[in-house]
């Protein structure tokens, strides 16, 4: 599958199975990315589903200028931003539900990231500025380069490059305080 573009083309031609493939491949990554915005894995799951519903109902044109994953994550990001705008008041999660949320998130992380070291790295991202966490997630966990990240977060290449640099520095110092070493930093 060429990052989902051919599956999306099949879906536009009337084959729903094409879209099922897209959901299968991208659901976890998209959900974890959106979780960086809403800090609630269940809401992130709903937003991920909303992203797919938006694509299925509106059938937006995919030009192929960026890769399909970048395009999909950019749509997801817009939906998350819309959600945050509508729900500007941060709702407190009750303490009894918090443990459920955290265990669900850990399950998704384990299933999606598999690598224990990456899971620990993801945990450290949560302690960073949310802006840093978003770009670092895209770069370390979704393997996007700076150009693709810039497209998703709608910033210029230079701004994104600076943001990534500062985010990496912040993560490094965070990991050092936790006594954790990540060789890619």
């Amino acid at each position: 599958m060429d990052n989902g573009a051919s599956s999306y083309r099949r879906f536009l031609d009337g084959d729903d199975e094409g879209f099922v493939e897209i959901i299968k491949v991208y659901k976890d990554g998209l959900m974890l990315y959106l979780n960086n915005y809403v800090q609630n894995i269940h809401i992130a799951e709903d937003l991920m589903e909303d992203t797919f519903v938006r694509i299925v109902t509106k059938k937006p044109h995919f030009s192929g200028k960026s890769n399909f994953k970048t395009w999909l994550y950019a749509i997801g990001k817009n939906i998350a931003v819309d959600y945050l705008r509508k729900h500007s008041k941060i709702s407190e999660v009750p303490a009894d539900q918090l443990s459920v949320f955290l265990s669900d998130e850990t399950d998704v992380l384990k299933e999606y990231l598999r690598d224990e070291q990456k899971i620990l790295l993801h945990e450290s991202l949560k302690k960073l500025n949310p802006e840093y966490a978003k770009v670092l997630y895209l770069i370390y966990f979704e393997d996007f380069n700076i150009t693709e990240t810039a497209i998703i977060i709608k910033k210029s290449y230079k701004q994104t490059e600076n943001l990534v640099y500062r985010a990496k520095r912040a993560l490094k110092s965070q990991l050092e305080t936790e006594g954790f070493v990540y060789e890619e930093l």
């Binding site: 729903d16 959901i23 299968k24 589903e49 299925v56 109902t57």
Partner: peptide, 8 residues
């Protein structure tokens, strides 16, 4: 998720 998406 796919079923839910198509239902919606």
């Amino acid at each position: 998720i796919a079923n839910s998406v198509f239902e919606r």
